[in-house]
Design a protein around this nucleic acid. Sequence first.
DNA 1: CGCGGCTTTGATGTTCATCAAGTAAAGTGG
DNA 2: CCACTTTACTTGATGAACATCAAAGCCGCG
Lengths: 231, 231
Amino acid sequence: MNYKTPKCSCEQCQLKNLFFSHVSEDELFDICDIKEERTYTKGQRILNEGDPIDDFLYMKEGLVKLSKSSGEQKDQIISFSKPFDFVSLLSVFSSKVHMYSVTALEDSTVCVLDLNVVKNKAQENAMFTMDMMVRISEATDKIIIENLIIRRKQLKGRVAHVLLYFANYIYERDEFELPISRREIAEYIGMTTENVIRTLSEFRKDNIIKIFGKDILIVDKSRLESISEFG
Amino acid sequence: MNYKTPKCSCEQCQLKNLFFSHVSEDELFDICDIKEERTYTKGQRILNEGDPIDDFLYMKEGLVKLSKSSGEQKDQIISFSKPFDFVSLLSVFSSKVHMYSVTALEDSTVCVLDLNVVKNKAQENAMFTMDMMVRISEATDKIIIENLIIRRKQLKGRVAHVLLYFANYIYERDEFELPISRREIAEYIGMTTENVIRTLSEFRKDNIIKIFGKDILIVDKSRLESISEFG
DNA sequence: CGCGGCTTTGATGTTCATCAAGTAAAGTGG
DNA sequence: CCACTTTACTTGATGAACATCAAAGCCGCG
């Protein structure tokens, strides 16, 4: 399913400056040498909750969801991540096993480093560690704040918020294909699937959005923003 | 209000091993030299949302809440922290201003270091930085997971969960004085004050707990645990 | 003493989950 | 490729969970 590409050139990687700006060329070569790139197709599980943490991952391309299962058939979605938002990051230095599952929502490419190598590097190169720490802080802060925002809205506000989240933050356009099912929206905002659907239908009837299956077109954005804020 | 004690001896601090196990005695002396200890009384604000981040704080004693205001009079409580759970930690390396307010719920002692000194230390001493990163990860992971747990319960389960949280995690006994008001419980679990009170009264009527103002005695713990899990 | 904040209870209405039932879409095996 | 099964989606009806409004008692504090 997922295949390993031959070593690619880290020198030209966009992410190089993000994580390795304080890693010398020599050191980078070491890291690069053990690096593996994996691609996942839409729907594939990248990490499983409970699996041991052996690797250090970061996203190069695509979109994923972080989720946690809570009893049979009940999932909670914690966040969505795109490149530059980290992935394996959250519990990587504080736990032996992954606390969340990670699933590809779009075809995704992930860079995989042996965690021990990264840890060793981190123990010698303080600037590298600092850079990572900043990334970790940013990623987790984002999750915490997003959760607070969602929690203080009610149904309509939450659905509006999610639509705007994908439009503004993920796709940067007002017409897009929802990468997730209605049920997943529900799992993210903590409501039921039926009510998510009802709300979307209502937005459609009120000419705020147009819906063609998974395709969404935001027609009246200011109205949607107002619902997100006050509704 | 809060007073600065003369430099205390870091050598004997319980927290030394936690944060500074990889800092040499010499380096520790540098840090110790610029350290300030501040005490806050119950109710005092330690940090204000929006204030610039100049210091690096960690708790020595007491109990605090992290909160975020969302419009007039509407606060959301993010988490409670006791010593060994970090404090100024969350956004300290990823933002210029504090994203949350921190308030003492009990008389608290906080150790204050100049952030630049800590950053400099972190940039030279990778092991120190690693230790910090692990702490940060643990603290934020805890917040995220606790939030997920609360979110999948409803009113009674959430109130039961909070009582057990204080009994098991904060005070480690089944009789304790609630360090927060009913309103703050509501702000933490995302329900209204009235419903928190109603639920507590109901627990009292069902002989699950006894209430004397802020004093709580858990009478039927297994029942409370069952409500927390299934209710 | 009186004011404001915290607590409590009840009555009422809104929001939302649940149940039910049906359609559409998508994957599965012959 | 078609029948079959499953999964996603949709709408309506009902009741449960919860917020809101109102009123009153309590307590600490100036």
